Simulated assay, not measured.
Amino acid sequence: MGDPGRATDEDRLARAGGDADGRDDRPLVEPVPDAPAAVADLGGETGLLLADYHAGIEAGLRYERGVELDSAADERRERVLDLLARTGADRLVVLGDLGHRIGGAGDAETEEVEALLSAVGVPVTLALGNHDPGLADAFGDRIEVTPPGGARLGDVGVLHGHTWPAPAVLGADVVCMGHEHVAVRLEDEVGGGRAEKAWLRGPLAREAFAAAVDLAGVEWRDPELVVFPAFNDRSGGTWVNVDGQGFLAPFLPDALAGGEAYLLDGTRLGDYRRV
């Protein structure tokens, strides 16, 4: 089973801090085994990156769909704390949609985020997502919030993905995003199927941004795009290998023409369109 985070060409190995002889060839962004989160070298800091936390989702599902579910806020928080302990990360980076409610932060969201921020013990960066403006207003003095187009942390670009990336993000070596809630549909020998969370990774295609992002001042470094699965288990997902379930980001799928899918345990599935 291959390492979904390991680059193979000399240039990317060098940018990740190693060389073609295998010396210190650790990737800039490496998924945590069996978790919808990754560790990233942010240049002087180690970041724990995750996407689509969707605090307060149970209250949202009750209001939006009439679905009654007990809150899993404590379980979500404990999963984050466990990952921070396992990885020794210096910073928590949420790739958008820390909250669930659009248009303002509700009580369930603010209570859950307050408890999370009080527990993590490390600085928190939020790449602003389409669900986040209310939380950004409520917690902006305690969270570093990026513009909607994201920001660059060391050699890693971070954004949610609901808008076009900022030029600086595209000048990074690796670009990380959420928003898509990536999942794949897998079938067994008798026709049964199940959905599994998945990562998408592959070269970022410059031409996909030519008409929408001013790249004149960007040093293009042939970045890799990493599309994260959703951290929240109740937020649903888009089956990227099923016809009719299109992407949400304005630059996908064009920007990831050569992307491959990986399960959370690192299993490489190959071209995500042919899984």
Rank of each mutant, 00 (worst) to 15 (best):
D70E: 14
A72C: 08
A73F: 10
A73P: 12
E75F: 07
E75G: 08
E75T: 15
R76Q: 15
R76F: 04
R76L: 15
R79S: 11
V80A: 10
L83A: 13
L84S: 02
L84H: 02
A85C: 01
R86P: 00
R86D: 13
G88N: 11
A89C: 10
A89E: 11
D90E: 11
D90M: 08
R91S: 09
V93M: 03
V93D: 06
L95M: 07
D97I: 12
H100Q: 15
R101A: 04
G104M: 05
G104R: 07
G104I: 07
A105T: 13
D107H: 01
E109S: 09
E109R: 11
T110M: 10
T110D: 02
E111F: 09
E111C: 07
E111R: 15
E111K: 13
E112I: 13
E112L: 12
V113N: 06
V113E: 08
E114D: 15
A115F: 05
A115R: 15
L117T: 14
L117M: 12
L117Q: 14
S118L: 13
A119G: 06
A119I: 13
V120D: 04
G121R: 14
G121Y: 14
V122S: 06
P123K: 00
P123F: 00
V124P: 06
V124I: 08
T125D: 02
T125K: 01
L126H: 02
L126D: 03
L126Q: 05
L126M: 03
A127R: 04
L128C: 01
N130H: 08
D132Q: 10
P133T: 09
P133K: 03
L135K: 14
D137L: 12
A138W: 05
F139I: 09
G140V: 08
D141T: 15
I143D: 03
V145M: 07
V145E: 03
P148V: 08
G150W: 13
G150C: 11
G150Q: 13
A151C: 07
R152I: 10
R152Q: 15
L153D: 07
L153K: 02
L153R: 08
G154S: 02
V156P: 05
G157R: 07
V158H: 00
V158E: 00
L159M: 15
H160D: 04
H160V: 09
G161C: 06
